[in-house]
Deep mutational scan, measured.
Amino acid sequence: TTTLTYTDEEEARKAAEELKRRGITFTYTKRGGTWEIRIK
């Protein structure tokens, strides 16, 4: 499992869109002031 952490929502959203485009499965979690993208 790879976890990407972002403090900028815009960056996190761009990363999530890129992963979706590649067909990669991930979970997206907001934790306080950070956003976590966990790639399975």
Rank of each mutant, 00 (worst) to 15 (best):
Thr1Lys: 08
Thr1Gly: 13
Thr1Trp: 15
Thr1Gln: 12
Thr1Asp: 13
Thr1Arg: 05
Thr2Ile: 15
Thr2Ala: 10
Thr2Met: 13
Thr2Gly: 08
Thr3Lys: 07
Thr3Tyr: 10
Thr3Asp: 03
Thr3Asn: 04
Thr3Arg: 07
Thr3His: 06
Thr3Leu: 14
Thr3Trp: 08
Leu4Ser: 03
Leu4Ile: 11
Leu4Gln: 05
Leu4His: 07
Leu4Pro: 01
Leu4Trp: 14
Leu4Glu: 03
Leu4Thr: 04
Thr5His: 10
Thr5Asp: 02
Thr5Met: 10
Thr5Pro: 02
Thr5Glu: 06
Thr5Arg: 12
Thr5Phe: 14
Tyr6Phe: 15
Tyr6Pro: 00
Tyr6Trp: 03
Tyr6Asn: 00
Tyr6Glu: 00
Tyr6Ile: 02
Tyr6Lys: 00
Thr7Pro: 04
Thr7Cys: 04
Thr7Ala: 08
Thr7Ile: 09
Thr7Val: 09
Thr7Gln: 09
Thr7His: 11
Thr7Phe: 12
Asp8Lys: 08
Asp8Ser: 14
Asp8Glu: 08
Asp8Gly: 04
Glu9Lys: 06
Glu9Val: 05
Glu9Trp: 08
Glu10Gly: 13
Glu10Leu: 12
Glu10Gln: 13
Glu10Ser: 13
Glu10Asp: 12
Glu10Ile: 11
Glu10Asn: 13
Glu11Asp: 10
Glu11Lys: 07
Glu11Thr: 11
Glu11Gly: 05
Glu11His: 07
Glu11Ala: 11
Ala12Thr: 01
Ala12Ile: 02
Ala12Asp: 00
Ala12Met: 08
Ala12Gln: 01
Arg13Thr: 09
Arg13Asp: 06
Arg13Met: 14
Arg13Gly: 04
Arg13Phe: 08
Arg13Ser: 07
Arg13Leu: 15
Arg13Tyr: 07
Arg13Pro: 00
Arg13Val: 11
Lys14Tyr: 07
Lys14Pro: 01
Lys14Trp: 07
Lys14His: 09
Lys14Arg: 12
Lys14Ser: 10
Lys14Thr: 09
Lys14Asn: 10
Ala15Val: 14
Ala15Gly: 03
Ala15Pro: 00
Ala15Met: 15
Ala15Asn: 03
Ala16Asp: 01
Ala16Pro: 00
Ala16Val: 12
Ala16Cys: 05
Ala16His: 02
Ala16Met: 15
Ala16Thr: 05
Ala16Trp: 04
Glu17Arg: 11
Glu17His: 09
Glu17Tyr: 10
Glu18Lys: 05
Glu18Ala: 09
Glu18Pro: 01
Glu18Phe: 09
Glu18Trp: 12
Glu18Gly: 06
Glu18Asn: 08
Leu19Gln: 01
Leu19Gly: 00
Leu19His: 01
Leu19Lys: 00
Leu19Asn: 01
Lys20Val: 12
Lys20Gln: 12
Lys20Asp: 09
Lys20Phe: 10
Lys20Thr: 14
Lys20Met: 12
Lys20Pro: 01
Lys20Trp: 11
Arg21Trp: 05
Arg21Gln: 10
Arg21Met: 10
Arg21Lys: 12
Arg21Phe: 07
Arg21Ala: 11
Arg22Ser: 08
Arg22Thr: 05
Arg22Gln: 14
Arg22Asp: 06
Arg22Tyr: 07
Arg22Glu: 07
Arg22Val: 06
Arg22Ile: 08
Arg22Asn: 10
Arg22Phe: 06
Arg22Met: 13
Arg22Leu: 14
Gly23Ser: 03
Gly23Asp: 04
Gly23Cys: 02
Gly23Val: 01
Gly23Gln: 03
Gly23Arg: 03
Gly23Tyr: 03
Ile24Val: 11
Ile24Cys: 03
Ile24Met: 05
Ile24Asp: 02
Ile24Arg: 03
Thr25Asn: 13
Thr25Pro: 14
Thr25Asp: 15
Thr25Tyr: 12
Thr25Lys: 14
Thr25Gln: 14
Thr25Ala: 14
Phe26Glu: 00
Phe26Gln: 00
Phe26Val: 02
Phe26Asn: 01
Phe26Met: 02
Phe26Trp: 01
Thr27Arg: 04
Thr27Asn: 04
Thr27Pro: 00
Thr27Ala: 05
Tyr28Arg: 02
Tyr28Pro: 01
Tyr28Cys: 06
Tyr28Val: 15
Tyr28Ala: 06
Thr29Gly: 07
Thr29Lys: 09
Thr29Ser: 09
Thr29Pro: 00
Thr29His: 11
Thr29Asn: 08
Thr29Arg: 09
Lys30Ala: 11
Lys30Tyr: 14
Lys30Ser: 09
Lys30Pro: 07
Lys30Ile: 08
Arg31Gly: 06
Arg31Tyr: 11
Arg31His: 12
Arg31Thr: 13
Arg31Phe: 11
Arg31Lys: 14
Arg31Met: 12
Arg31Gln: 12
Gly32Asn: 14
Gly32Glu: 13
Gly32Tyr: 05
Gly32Arg: 05
Gly32Asp: 14
Gly33Met: 11
Gly33Glu: 15
Gly33Lys: 11
Gly33Ser: 13
Gly33Leu: 12
Gly33His: 13
Gly33Val: 09
Thr34Phe: 14
Thr34Met: 14
Thr34Leu: 14
Thr34Val: 15
Thr34Cys: 04
Trp35His: 04
Trp35Arg: 01
Trp35Ile: 14
Trp35Met: 02
Trp35Lys: 00
Trp35Asn: 01
Glu36Thr: 09
Glu36Val: 14
Glu36Trp: 05
Glu36Pro: 00
Ile37Arg: 00
Ile37Lys: 00
Ile37Met: 02
Ile37Cys: 00
Ile37Asp: 00
Arg38Gly: 06
Arg38His: 14
Arg38Ala: 12
Arg38Ser: 13
Ile39Val: 08
Ile39Leu: 07
Ile39Gly: 01
Ile39Ala: 02
Ile39Lys: 01
Ile39Ser: 02
Lys40Asp: 14
Lys40Ile: 15
Lys40Trp: 15
Lys40Ala: 14
Lys40Glu: 15
Lys40Arg: 11
Lys40Gly: 14
